[in-house]
Amino acid sequence: MQTDMTTGKKQAQLFTVQNMVKMALCIAFCCVSAFISFPLPFTPGLVTALTIALTVTALVLPPQLTFIAVAAYVLLGAVGLPIFPGGVGGLGRLFGPTGGFYIGWPFVCLVESLLKGSKVSFRRYALVAVVAGVPLTYVGGLISMMYVMHVDLIQGMAMAVFPFIPGDIMKALLAAVIAERVNRMLANR
């Protein structure tokens, strides 16, 4: 019985007004950043600023809240709000060639959040974002691209991975800078 009360207290401490506001701001950041996107002619994937917002979310929120916030973003888009890259929404996006990215994001962000550590550190954030976040993001997208487009591994990587690597590394580093500044600001309050 004591552990149930302790678990309830921990959950209550996790879902504070401050944390709920942070989650809402992170979801809003994801929604707005998704509109900053452009297509590449040889792939159904879009280059998007959303990956910056997702990484910032993972590096600012605790792991449980990260998963909930990113899953809420995906759910909002899945029910039809036009908040996915390209200004679209709906279940069709989740079952299309890029659907694996959307489905994988809550899990990728959870892993990033778990690996970020407790100290505010640009180096740690950058390492986690580049070494864990970028490659893990490609896994879901590659699988869905191969399955839906009926292509092999090399063709799938040519459409879902290779063209995006340089930009995604730069976006991961930018997200680490933003997250470090936000976390330092929040720590000084």
Rank of each mutant, 00 (worst) to 15 (best):
Phe67Leu: 15
Gln155Lys: 10
Gly133Leu: 04
Leu142Tyr: 06
Pro39Gly: 11
Met145Lys: 00
Val56Ala: 07
Ser33Leu: 12
Met1Trp: 09
Ala132Arg: 04
Phe38Gly: 09
Val134Tyr: 06
Val74Tyr: 02
Lys22Gln: 14
Pro135Gln: 10
Phe29Arg: 02
Cys31Val: 12
Ile169Gly: 01
Arg123Gly: 14
Val151Met: 07
Leu91Tyr: 09
Phe15Ala: 04
Cys26Ile: 00
Val131Leu: 15
Phe84Leu: 08
Trp105Pro: 03
Ala34Trp: 03
Gly133Trp: 05
Leu65Ile: 08
Lys116Asp: 09
Leu153Ala: 13
Val60Glu: 09
Phe29Trp: 03
Phe164Asn: 04
Leu142Cys: 06
His150Lys: 15
Thr51Cys: 07
Val128Pro: 05
Pro135Gly: 10
Thr3Leu: 02
Arg123Pro: 01
Gly96Glu: 00
Gly8Ile: 11
Thr7Pro: 00
Phe95Val: 13
Pro166Arg: 07
Ala129Val: 05
Leu153Pro: 05
Val111Glu: 10
Val21Cys: 12
Ala24His: 02
Arg124Thr: 15
Met5His: 14
Thr16Arg: 09
Tyr147Val: 13
Ala176Phe: 04
Gln2Ser: 13
Ala126Val: 03
Ala71Gly: 12
Phe42Lys: 01
Ser144Ile: 05
Thr6Leu: 14
Leu59Met: 08
Ala24Leu: 11
Val161Gln: 04
Phe35Arg: 10
Val47Glu: 04
